[in-house]
């Protein structure tokens, strides 16, 4: 038994001593190429991935057995014509260069179908849609002939009505929603039209009298002129909005909805930025055209100079 053990041990040891460096060299891309002068050549790889997967791959017009996502390995350095083909999709052709020891990666190739398949998600008439970034919802703008806007959940393929609550100062009629912003620590959405600002709380879904799911859109401000943008401020307690080159701050938590506070004017046709992390707003001054910043939410009490 001792002899057998030693024999097997040394056989395995010799095998390991030979195989290990060869496998490591192979891992780095080295192959034995008899046609090459040096016989040992460092190769490269091509990695392809497509949507949809499972497409056939052709290398210099020769079909490969790999399907996407595919790793084509042991390629001598040089240029290669790659064709990706799959039924009912247009062919995808590309020329790729392969370098020794490197992997040329072409991932996330979208194959274009020969015929796009369209699906009707809703049968009502809508004038437009606004996706609410960060949620699974779109706001479907109501058509003139429709009585309510809707929220559409693209993941569950369900919709619910948007029940608008209008404040007395608001003029009745269709409010065209221009933009939306999700509050980052909750599921409340700030919504604005040209003259109005409102809030949707996505967590509060109720059934209306017909048993249809509804979500309430509270219009909290309706006296704007040309509201272009609104952002949440201070953990969803306030909103900063741009109305006709003026920046206003409004308290959205007060049940009486105080009048918005005018803060400053910005250069016409320009934009502003607010950082919730620092509580600071940035804008272009209309007079000096300088980039300005102003602390909207103070992080510390300012010390005044004592005279």
């Amino acid at each position: 038994m001792l002899f057998l053990r030693k024999l097997v041990f040394y056989c395995f040891l010799i095998f390991y001593a030979i195989a290990c460096p060869l496998i490591i060299l192979y891992a780095f891309g080295y192959i034995f190429e008899p046609r090459n002068l040096s016989h040992v050549v460092k190769t490269g790889d091509i990695h392809l991935s497509t949507a949809p997967p499972g497409a056939s791959v052709y290398l210099n017009n020769k079909p490969l057995k790999e399907k996407t996502p595919a790793l084509i390995s042991q390629l001598l350095p040089g240029d290669y014509d790659i064709a990706i083909k799959t039924p009912e999709y247009s062919d995808y052709n590309i020329n790729l260069s392969v370098e020794a020891g490197s992997a040329t990666v072409r991932d996330n190739i979208i194959l274009i179908p020969e015929k796009w398949e369209y699906k009707v998600c809703g049968t009502r008439n809508f004038s437009g849609m606004i996706p609410i970034e960060g949620t699974d919802f779109f706001i479907m703008q109501k058509h003139e002939s429709s009585d309510r806007a809707e929220l559409y959940n693209y993941k569950t393929d369900e919709n619910c009505f948007l029940q608008e609550v209008q404040i007395p100062a608001q003029k009745k009629g269709t409010v065209l929603i221009v933009g939306v912003e999700l509050e980052r620590n909750s599921v409340k959405v700030l919504v604005w039209g040209k003259k109005c600002i409102g809030i949707i709380d996505l967590s509060k879904q109720e059934d209306d009298s017909n048993g249809k799911k509804t979500v309430t859109l509270d219009w909290i401000f309706a006296s704007g002129k040309d509201i272009k943008k609104a952002v949440w401020v201070y953990n969803g307690s306030h909103a900063l909005f741009l109305d006709d080159s003026s920046i206003y701050l409004i308290d959205v938590t007060s049940p009486d909805f105080r009048d918005p506070e005018f803060l400053f004017k910005i250069k016409e046709e320009s934009n502003f930025f607010y950082s919730e992390d620092t509580g600071t707003a940035y804008y272009v001054d209309p007079r000096t055209e300088s980039l300005m910043s102003v602390e909207i939410v103070s992080k510390a009490i300012k010390k005044t100079d004592k005279k």
């Binding site: 891992a27 780095f28 891309g29 790889d45 992997a103």
Partner: peptide, 13 residues
């Protein structure tokens, strides 16, 4: 590392 042959070959091996 992701653009090396080793990155793809090591898991295969």
């Amino acid at each position: 590392f992701q653009h090396t042959v080793l990155y793809y070959n090591a898991p295969r091996i």
